[in-house]
Design a protein around this nucleic acid. Structure first.
Lengths: 243, 243
DNA sequence: ACAATAAAAAATGTGCACATTTGGCATGGG
DNA sequence: CCCATGCCAAATGTGCACATTTTTTATTGT
């Protein structure tokens, strides 16, 4: 076994840094508007600045960070309008998915959706908020995945990851749980092969969620201690500068 | 006016190289499977290898090139299955767009769509194949753009750019013109506010286009003279190595 | 002659030094 | 007192040299 090279060619580092920053984004630990400078991040993760640079630009290409030429990367500060647009896109995409699903719906798929609904109800009954939120989002993922089209799944994945970041800004504290009954109503409409009703119910469902959005607009605190945010993870190499 | 800097910091070069390669891709001048090595491209465009590198990775992130670690960039060689998936995604997205459009359709929008249909018919009558193809694609863009949601427009744009590359591989020579009557039928269904019919017509329309796909599978000629492909454009700097 | 192996050539990936740009701060004029 | 102008520090962007990996070529043994 060769010792880990300390200075050169470690392709896994890219992914590690990428995942670390991405998770911080998805978990809402990075607040909107926070500046992500290259040099501090390089110190925190103990990797070269170029590596951070590459990851930051990659996240920018995925629209998860806002890149401004010569001015670096920031956590995007979505307008309420932006959030609405993402939600509308999700709504529109799901309408299309339902129209396609209604053509190839069968008992196997319905059974799988029913099983998921049962899981959701169980989690809701035992008051498991975290599980409820997770399963609630998973329902919509199940719908697209049922079509077996990676293109569509990826499109939804992008939307979800972006809205989940937004949720942490605008949603009132973690009460963003889709009512299980509405999910059930969608499945019921699919079972009846009533496409118009399925689309209408889905639409109503999304509008309910959108209606809960609140515009907090905390202009303050664009600065944030990055070292603290990424504290949980040990540095990839030993070079973490303590202060 | 300052003379163009020859060695450093020219942000416009990124975009120029990007556009050049992208256009070559969209125009089908780069055949599927062609290897895009960094060093030759740097010579051809007369820029540093790092710049080519950045552009290639960007195109890879946009899924327009296939990037393999340590092995460089290739023009993707989509399977017929891949093409079908992109077409299906387009179909599904348009169904969703129609369902949203049917809720906010008005005379202004209908008039605009009618105008576009008239343009299409005119081009078809005078046998202008190029204009027909362009307008035919533009119709679907008009539909999403009518919703005024940049997210959705971008999603469609991605799909279109990818399928247009694919078309150059699988479509029988340039006869990929949507029948204008089918576009007209979609608008007519929208005018009647008959969502189910609009979705059905749109679906049929896409299936017609998909049905014309042919699998040529010319395994040969993965190599191609890159200098010839980009010959039309003068090098950005004077360093083009003649041979 | 063929296959396997090894050496060489070419292409990709990375760290570093330096160029360029931006933002803040002090200074001076209105 | 406020705004404009010009330096200075800090952050981003780029070319280059070198490390690593892949691919091609040459060699040797069976």
């Amino acid at each position: 076994m060769r010792a880990q090279r300390i200075g050169k060619a470690n392709p896994a580092e890219d992914e590690a840094v990428y995942q670390a920053i991405l998770r911080a984004l998805l978990e809402g630990k990075l607040k909107a508007g926070t500046k992500l400078a290259e040099t501090p991040l390089a110190s925190i993760f103990g990797v070269s600045r170029e590596r951070i640079r590459k990851v930051l630009h990659r996240l920018g290409a995925e629209r998860r960070l806002e890149m401004i030429p010569n001015r670096g990367a920031r956590v995007p500060r979505p307008t309420l309008e932006d959030v609405r647009r993402v939600y509308e896109a999700h709504r529109v995409l799901e309408a299309g998915v339902l129209s396609q699903l209604s053509l190839r719906i069968d008992e196997v798929l319905l059974a799988r959706l029913d099983a998921h609904l049962a899981e959701e109800r169980t989690a809701a009954q035992r008051g498991d908020r975290a599980a409820s939120v997770r399963l609630s989002g998973a329902f919509h993922v199940h719908l697209v995945d049922a079509l077996g089209n990676p293109e569509l799944s990826r499109m939804l994945g992008d939307l979800l990851s972006r809205s989940s970041v937004m949720v942490s800004v605008y949603e009132p504290a973690a009460q963003s749980i889709c009512a299980v009954d509405e999910h059930g109503a969608i499945v019921a409409a699919l079972r009846d092969r009533d496409l118009l009703r399925a689309i209408a119910v889905s639409r109503e469902h999304f509008l309910h969620v959108e209606g809960r959005l609140r515009l907090d607009e905390d202009e303050a605190a664009p600065t944030q201690d990055l070292a603290a945010v990424f504290a949980g993870r040990r540095p990839l190499r030993g070079k973490l500068r303590s202060a």
